[in-house]
Amino acid sequence: MSNHFSFQPIAQSSGTKARAGVFHTPHGIVETPRFMPVGTLANVKTITPAQLRDTGAQMVLSNTYHLHLQPGEDIVAGAGGLHKFMGWNGPMLTDSGGFQVFSLSDMRKITEEGVTFRSPHDGQIINLTPEKSIEIQNNLGADVIMAFDECPPATANRQEVEAATERTYRWLERCITAHKREDQALFGIVQGGVHLDLRSQAVAALTQLDLPGYAIGGVSVGEEPELIHAIVHATAPLLPYNKPRYLMGVGTYKEIAMAIASGIDLFDCVIPTRWARHGTAMVQGERWNLKNAKFRDDFQPLDASCPCYTCQNFSRAYISHLVRSQEILAYTLLSIHNITELIRFTQKIRQSIINDSFAEDFASWLT
């Protein structure tokens, strides 16, 4: 790990693999375990960077694929990089675009060189290679950048998953060669589908490259939750203890708690803001549809114990009214609360790990 980055585990939970740590980046620290909000297009949907900071967010994500299409990495670089462009001065991560490209299954072609696809914006043919993904991310300037990987769908057979896992490794080697900035940490991604032996082999190969951090990818692409837990439980402890471990695309209470128990440090998911745009609040791990009639005259806050701006100032009845009226403020207030909710959940888990009471305090989420 370069002088710009370090990771120190500071506490270990008895009876589980959960650990609390501190990840140092050029734009500040991340206290792990931690949920990271997603700002796909250099914006966490419907909220400002100041509101985002108030949720307790420390590190946020943006997306290589989407920013390449609009506005283009040259525009972002011209603004002084992603941090200045979007007004966020904390740690930031960009994913490689691999997941988005592979979700365009009817519009793309995979070869050893990379992926060719047709832009959904204007129909232009775009070639995204490991080298191009790294070049874009170097221009965007996030603290952590992700290797370009092949993410097989949950329906892929073993032979297809094996080929994708091997190609992911070869692409990673090319990403390492292409990477030009010491102030950006390049993380590798463990693929392998639901095949635990392939996951184990991938970890063994990737960790030989001694990267600053590692991610588990290719989960939450259609598998049953039990399979996700099995993959993470088997794979996370194999990753280096002194490097951050990132589980991509996971964002429910149970998934987060069980992944932390397996030794994961970082999470991201679009759930808090996506649910907000559907009028849904996350409260103590439950999903509340604010369109329900019972909320029309309920003048309590969403959660009286929540310190967020929404809960401190507005009632369920008011938010229900905004949702029913399709007022944009509804989505802002719900996004603020939902993000705060998940970050508070990971903060509470962190404190319980430091107190060595995690297994007891969060037992209801670990079964």
Rank of each mutant, 00 (worst) to 15 (best):
R199Q: 04
G72S: 14
L196T: 03
I264K: 03
K109E: 13
L186R: 13
C306D: 12
A317T: 01
T168G: 01
T177Y: 14
T346P: 00
R274K: 15
L104C: 10
D265E: 11
R170H: 11
G123L: 07
H27S: 08
T332Q: 12
C306T: 05
G56F: 07
T252C: 10
S320I: 01
L104T: 11
K291D: 06
A236P: 00
P91Q: 05
Q208E: 09
L302K: 11
M146N: 04
A11M: 05
D265M: 08
Q284E: 05
D149A: 08
T155Q: 11
K254R: 13
I126W: 02
L104V: 10
E135S: 12
E226I: 15
V30A: 10
L238C: 00
Q326W: 05
H68A: 12
L67T: 00
L302W: 02
A11W: 04
S200T: 15
P152I: 12
C269T: 07
P212W: 05
L366V: 00
I75C: 14
S105G: 15
A359Q: 05
T367C: 11
F102T: 02
T111E: 13
A178F: 09
P244W: 04
L41R: 15
V101C: 11
D361F: 08
Q137R: 11
A236H: 00
D268C: 07
I339F: 03
L206Q: 08
L333E: 03
G193H: 02
P37G: 12
E113I: 04
T129L: 03
T346L: 15
A234C: 04
F267M: 12
H121Q: 13
D122K: 02
G222H: 02
K294E: 06
